[in-house]
């Protein structure tokens, strides 16, 4: 019996709840550890990034406006969908794949639970010296650019995305450059979860080409990155200065360590604290 000829899939980008090919028509070959060709991914262009940001900004307000309870439900649903794709994800990750998928799913669960607790822990009332009711509430800030580390390809990306979307932001993600396939499989899980289209937009491509444009895009309000070079860090921050993006670059993070990758401090950089005053005397 002859061996079956496998189909080599081309993973497309995920933008606005759809899976378009890159407008540039470029693809990148993906090889496994034995250098066998296993897939193609799109090599996203600046134009793809701009389309993704546009979709994200369109989708973001209604996601932010969803109740905290609902956002938690949706994130939990995402974990369920990832659970269904455990083997596919683990296979795409390669070595230790199963362990990494488990950790990634559990991380989504962790942040799913923050959606309706973060404001209680990090907001509050302020006892001002006067007849005013004064309180501070966290709000989503908009669309955040996420630059994923190469490794761990799935867990790193999930750890950067989950705290961003939990409080109602949208994101445009650049997947791991060395192994983008788990990210693209994740985007298929996301498409079948209840997360509205456009909240997580996934691009595969090259940091050398795209980091600059993440930094300079004026409709991104924040950056969450890990595993990037010093040059890319500087490029991101220089571009970000033009519209005063909130830039958070995680350095020396052990993504396998729950204690250092979970908690409200991962959400802090991606909310705006709004303080509201109202007279409380007539």
């Amino acid at each position: 019996m002859t061996e079956r000829l496998p189909i080599i899939k081309t993973y497309k980008l995920a933008i606005g709840g759809k899976f378009p090919r890159t407008e540039s028509g470029r693809t990148i070959e993906v090889h496994d550890s034995s250098q066998n060709l296993v897939a193609h991914v799109c090599r996203a262009s600046r134009k793809d990034l701009r389309n993704a940001v546009e979709s994200a900004n369109k989708a973001q307000p209604s996601w932010a406006n969803a109740t905290a309870f609902l956002r938690g439900q949706v994130l939990y649903r995402l974990a369920e969908m990832m659970e269904g794709k455990r083997l596919e994800l683990a296979h795409a990750i390669g070595e230790n794949g199963e362990h990494e998928v488990n950790a990634a799913i559990d991380r989504v669960i962790h942040f799913a639970g923050w959606t309706d607790k973060y404001a209680q822990i990090m907001g509050g009332t302020n006892p001002v010296a006067g007849p005013y009711h004064n309180f501070t509430i966290p709000f989503a800030m908009g669309t955040v650019g996420v630059i994923s580390p190469d490794e761990p390809s799935l867990l790193g990306l999930i750890s950067l995305i989950a705290p961003v979307i939990a409080m109602g932001n949208a994101c445009v993600v650049l997947a791991s450059e060395t192994n983008p396939v788990p990210a693209m499989i994740l985007s298929e899980a996301i498409a079948t979860s209840d997360l509205p289209g456009g909240i997580v937009n996934m691009l595969s491509g090259q940091r050398d080409e795209l980091v600059e444009h993440f930094g300079s895009h004026r409709d991104l309000i924040g950056i969450h990155a890990a595993g990037i070079s010093d040059d890319h860090r500087t490029t991101l921050r220089l571009g970000s200065a033009d519209n005063l993006k909130r830039v958070t670059i995680r350095e020396d993070v052990d993504f396998n360590d729950d204690e250092s990758c979970e908690g409200p401090n991962w959400i802090d950089p991606f909310v705006e604290f709004k303080t509201i005053w109202h007279p409380s005397a007539v």
């Binding site: 005013y132 705006e272 604290f273 303080t275 509201i276 005053w277 007279p279």
Partner: peptide, 9 residues
């Protein structure tokens, strides 16, 4: 979109 919102003040 404002960090401080004063209501009736």
């Amino acid at each position: 979109d404002a960090g401080i919102v004063w209501l009736n003040s």
